[in-house]
């Protein structure tokens, strides 16, 4: 009885699935899904390597400082960095007076209890990067976590910054309706191919204090490295803590295995 009941229940689910499968297959076979421009022309991030890659990688502080320079002089006009405090910049090699000077270049909104007004004051090291009032359309995302919030974060940012191009003729031929609308810019590394941000980097936009030539490629790489850091400033510490712990665990596990062999030595199992 129980067996018959279970077979009936089983048939209920399997027949329902077979029904879904059959109709789904029919639709799929008769009306194949139309390819879309995104599907055909979206590209995965370029291969690019950063000093912080891999289990042994550590941040290149010189590069992070260059990246910060690019952020401050280019990106900061539209993109905030709300999870990062100025004091954090000491971790990429700036000393205390330098951090104070950087902080003072930013205006921080402060609520004044006495007057009930929000006034802006010069930043101090304990302040966080201030919100950015963006007057244009859409709201540019906060960049603190951008490299963690995108697949293959660092290479994605780098590819996006260096990936602007004219829409391929091939695309327009097959998908005339996917023509980039006015006010948007074509970039195959962006998920839906068109984004509101124009190409932000131009040759020699920034004068690096360490004399590195500021090519678009260099700036894109540096700012991507900086944004990998802002997403996880503790990454170096994480990896440096990991190795001794893994080493110790390996040692302890070998001891544990030897002890296990010992205890079971006279016991066949």
């Amino acid at each position: 009885m129980a067996r018959i009941l279970s077979i009936l229940v089983g048939l209920f689910f399997t027949v329902a699935l077979a029904w879904s499968l059959g109709l789904g297959f029919y639709t799929w076979a008769t009306e194949p899904a139309q390819p879309t421009a995104e599907h055909e022309f979206h590209e995965h991030p370029k291969h690019v390597s950063f000093a912080s890659d891999g289990p042994f990688g550590t941040f290149d502080k010189q590069q992070l400082q260059r990246g910060f320079q690019v952020y401050q002089q280019v990106c900061a006009a539209c993109h905030a960095l709300k999870h990062v405090a100025f004091r954090d910049l000491e971790k990429i090699g700036y000393n205390e007076p330098e951090v104070k000077a950087i902080a003072a270049q930013f205006q921080i909104p402060k609520y004044d209890e006495m007057t009930g007004m929000v006034e802006t004051v010069e930043g101090t090291p304990t302040d966080y990067f201030p919100p950015v009032m963006y007057a244009g359309q859409g709201s540019p995302p906060d960049l603190s976590l951008i490299t963690k919030a995108r697949h293959d974060g660092g290479p994605y940012v780098y590819s996006l910054l260096t990936g602007y191009q004219d829409q391929p003729a091939e695309l327009l031929k097959h998908f005339p309706e996917a023509k980039t609308p006015d006010g948007l810019y074509y970039n195959p590394y962006f998920p839906n191919l068109n984004l509101a941000m124009p190409a932000p980097l131009m040759e020699d936009m920034v004068t690096y204090s360490d004399g590195t030539p500021a090519t678009v490629d260099q700036m894109a790489k540096d700012v991507s490295a900086f944004l990998i850091w802002t997403a996880e400033p503790t990454m170096d510490k994480r990896k440096q803590t990991g190795w001794p712990i893994l080493g110790f665990l390996l040692f302890a596990t070998i001891l544990g295995y030897m002890s296990y062999r010992n205890i079971w030595a006279n016991k066949k199992h």
Binding site: K239, G242, I245, L246, L249, T253, G256, Y260
Partner: peptide, 18 residues
């Protein structure tokens, strides 16, 4: 179980740290 915990801890820590 003791040495199995060791193996587990190695794999787990490899994930957590790397």
């Amino acid at each position: 179980d003791g040495w199995a915990i060791g193996v587990f801890a190695i794999l787990y820590c490899a994930m957590v740290f790397f």
